[in-house]
Amino acid sequence: MVIEVRNLLKRYGELVAVRGLSFEVKKGEIFGLLGPNGAGKTTTIRILMDILKPDEGEVKVLGRSPSEVKEKVGYLPEERGLYQGLGVLETLVYFAELKGVPRSVAKERANSLLEKVDLLDRAKGKVKELSKGMQQKLQFIASIIHDPEVVFLDEPFQGLDPVNVELIKGLITELREQGKTVVLSSHQMNLVEALCDRILLINKGEAVLYGPIREIKKRFTPNSILVKSPQLPPIVKGVQAVTRKDDAFLLTLAEGTSPQAVIKALVEEGVELEAFEVAPVPLEDIFVKVVKEGRHSALI
């Protein structure tokens, strides 16, 4: 395991920000750390980055205490920025040197990353001369300039246009392909869904949902199918209810009935089928539902 967290507890005076949190992150996966505002995500990440100390519990990153592995970990905080008066290349070299990278290696790596995000021609310019989107890209590459084993990305897509979102998505996927571990915190559920292998949803400092995205979605998917057809018979075998949904019909299946059996029945009855699919549940709906209901799940 790359990250191991056991019974983590963090208080700010009377307020308990993180309450008995336990989870693990495997090597080479993109792990989503999700939750509404004030859930304790940033506090958890700050503890994993050794910026804050836990009150109770055990935290290990790469098998060691977070303070011992700072040079192997990258961090893009939610509250982030750059020295506006400093040069672009100078900024990257300084951040790399702080991570223990020799100056010459840092320059080489900075140039290569700048090229990857189309900023090489700005290397000698000042940070303040860059647009907001360019600065976001610079911040992203600053978090991986030292070739870390683990990267924590807190809202990496904030303020980016769709083109740059795709670019950063590509870079995150590339990190996974290189065997790096990524912990991603974001409110953009479609992106989390597209990128993450597993997620941890926390609410009010506690874990409420934890496990592989596919299994979580499967678990929350209602037993229903979406059928596109001009006309449906009034009664279909194994179907409890039929409701109109835009230009399709949502069929709620009776317990023990499989979607395949219903499709077979429709075909046998001669129903003209234009399209059909198992009704999908977006991660966002699961997020809202779990947070609103305050549900706990031990799904692993």
């Binding site: 910026i51 961090y75 905080p77 982030r80 920025g81 702080l98 991570k99 600053a142």
Partner: peptide, 14 residues
């Protein structure tokens, strides 16, 4: 603090 650089730096050094 205003530039929000502080948190990036303390993720590298104590």
């Amino acid at each position: 603090k205003e530039n929000r650089v502080m948190e990036i730096i303390v993720s590298s050094v104590s």
